[in-house]
Design a binder for these strands. Structure first.
Lengths: 346, 346
DNA sequence: CGAGGTTTCGGAAACGTTTCCGGGAAACGT
DNA sequence: ACGTTTCCCGGAAACGTTTCCGAAACCTCG
């Protein structure tokens, strides 16, 4: 068997110089042809392409971006909460698609909601000179984001609001969506609506909680029905069981994040209460419609968010980075599937 | 408001030369210090670090990897079917985690099962000189993979078997898993088991179909119950409805891919047959346990697959690329949740 | 037909780093 | 004390490309 590395080592990399020699032209001309610049005689263009093909020449983007005036690397970076989370990966996909249309590649990393890790990712990405950065900010690395921005790299923040100079943001109207959901439940006659929320350090968690409160429109909310700082489906399940065990249990639940919604569903199903306690979740999730009852949700459109974010970033990369920050707010839609339409049982 | 780009443009990038001048040492010494090489006097190391800190020096990985002997870029690439697909993204996450431990970054792309796109991705990745490649091969770009391999970049293929020199693969024992599932159904007394499969161009689809046939152990399979080349949940739903409409409908369904399983669930629920027709799916999916009945599946472990693939790749990158291809086969496990345990109704 | 302008091309410098190499100082052995 | 080895260090070359600049060739027009 032939050992590839040896073979590869033997045969030196074919460079523009080689192409130039074989085509009988200057190095500069080869560069012009490869980059598709105008102002080269047609026959030379042909000769260069032919030589390149014969030699199996491959353009080296590393060397290219080192010398190039704009120093572009053709790469953007995406800092997600977790690439395996459905919201993140739908966003990722949308970004990839728009980036691909511009021949850009996407580097990704998961911060796991950890500011330290976010900082680390931002750092390694910028060392690699990415052309732009899309981040779901944990909130704890804003200084670094500002630094990156100052250093010249365009930045777009998604999902969470961040107030930084010349950093665009794309968010969802969390507060309105949450408020409307809670109002629906109250309109149905529910008076005791439990709340399940993520860490208060996360902007969306705070907004959705605010919406929950606003939805009550002056009505008192029982503190015992509120559980915040819940980080997983298991924790959510546990919390719901605890709340339902109390002496004045809720007749409805508002779960402010998709994992928490799933935990709530699990708890209700285990207790056989899925048809008696109403449930509305924030953020849609796959198969929510197939459960019984179907889970009503305040849906966001991660693909739309990703698309807008990518467009904003590409705009800044392409030309006009000299414009103030823009905040885009994407609306949410309520999807009625049954669980949110259950009337109160007393 | 200060316009960042101007500011950034004004102040030239601080380079190793600047650090060297400020520390009063040679350029080579700065390089040695930054790269943590031994053989530099302690006080010089200190001076260099101090100067670098004062000047806000940032190491340029692009320039570094251009000159560096091993030409490593600290980046690996991952070609998935679709980053938004749960199987792909779980794999992605596992790869990211192991890569991160070695300080490697991950570039990703979605081939959408399209060989053309796979080729394109492989091409752009290698132009960027990634240190290694992990691919879910469509099967139509094997020549390109071999070329990449010959050019010296380590390659690991996942999920689908590929026979290439010095290309490791990590697959699942599709055939055994499918066969066992079908046998379970037959043992339960089912005689008419429908089959739903993906495109035959995909290795896993062929293997699972083979397993389905083998599971019948000589018993005749009714061609009318077999549907292959199904590409989406909708198509699967349609196919199942069609089959159940026939004069001799199946009493059980084996769906050979997660999207198809979901389509089958949808069809059965719509027809109100979810408790009468047995169903086993290949590949687990989120919330399969929450449906009623719970969906029994032949589960694979995408995280395990990703972990192994990443380890194989890192091994080749690190040192011994001079070893023959290694094929790792990860076992599947059957997860009984109810839908696969429904006895035949005649 | 010649002056002036435009186009096309190649040599050489530059991008920011790593690595090669050679020189000087220190350490060692005799 | 002197030759030899070892150790640090800095200058310069190199990585593969893009861009600057000047030379040559080609037009255009009075």
């Amino acid at each position: 068997m032939t050992l590839i590395p040896n073979e590869a080592r033997r045969r030196r990399k074919v460079t523009m110089r080689d192409v130039a020699d074989r085509a009988g032209v200057g190095l500069a001309t080869v560069s012009r042809v490869i980059n598709g610049k105008s102002g080269v005689a047609a026959d030379l263009v042909e000769r260069v392409h032919e030589a390149a093909r014969d030699l199996g020449y491959r353009h080296d983007l590393t060397a290219s971006s080192l010398r190039r005036a704009d120093r572009r690397t053709g790469t953007i970076a995406l800092v997600l909460e977790d690439v395996a989370n459905p919201f993140s990966s739908a966003l990722h996909r949308a970004v990839e698609d728009t980036a691909h249309a511009e021949n850009l590649l996407v580097l990704t990393g998961s911060s796991d909601e950890n500011p330290e890790r976010e900082r680390e990712l931002i750092d390694t990405f910028t060392l690699r000179r990415v052309d732009g950065l899309i981040v779901i900010p944990t909130g704890g690395a804003d200084t670094e984001l500002a630094a990156v921005r100052r250093q010249g790299t365009p930045v777009v923040c998604v999902d969470r609001l961040v107030e930084l100079d010349q950093v665009d943001t794309v968010t969802v109207d969390n507060r309105t969506g949450a408020r409307a959901a809670v109002q629906r439940l109250l309109d149905l006659g529910h008076r005791r609506v439990a709340f399940l929320g993520d860490m208060a350090s996360i902007w969306t968690a705070r907004e959705r909680y605010a919406g929950y409160l606003e939805g009550h429109a002056g009505r008192r909310v029982d503190e015992r029905l509120v559980r915040r700082e819940i980080r997983s489906a298991d924790a959510a399940e546990h919390a719901i069981r605890e709340i339902l065990d109390g002496d004045e249990p809720p007749t409805a639940v508002f779960a402010a994040q998709n994992l928490l919604t799933i935990g709530a569903v699990r708890a209700l199903q285990r207790l056989g209460l899925q048809d008696r306690v109403a449930l509305i979740g924030f953020d849609d999730f796959p198969l929510a419609d197939m459960l019984s009852p179907g889970v009503s949700v305040v849906a966001q459109d991660p693909a739309e968010i990703g698309l807008i974010a990518a467009r904003l970033l590409l705009g800044r990369i392409a030309d006009d980075d000299d414009r103030p920050a823009r905040h885009v707010v994407v609306p949410t839609t309520y999807v009625a599937r049954g669980s949110g339409e259950i009337p109160p049982t007393d």
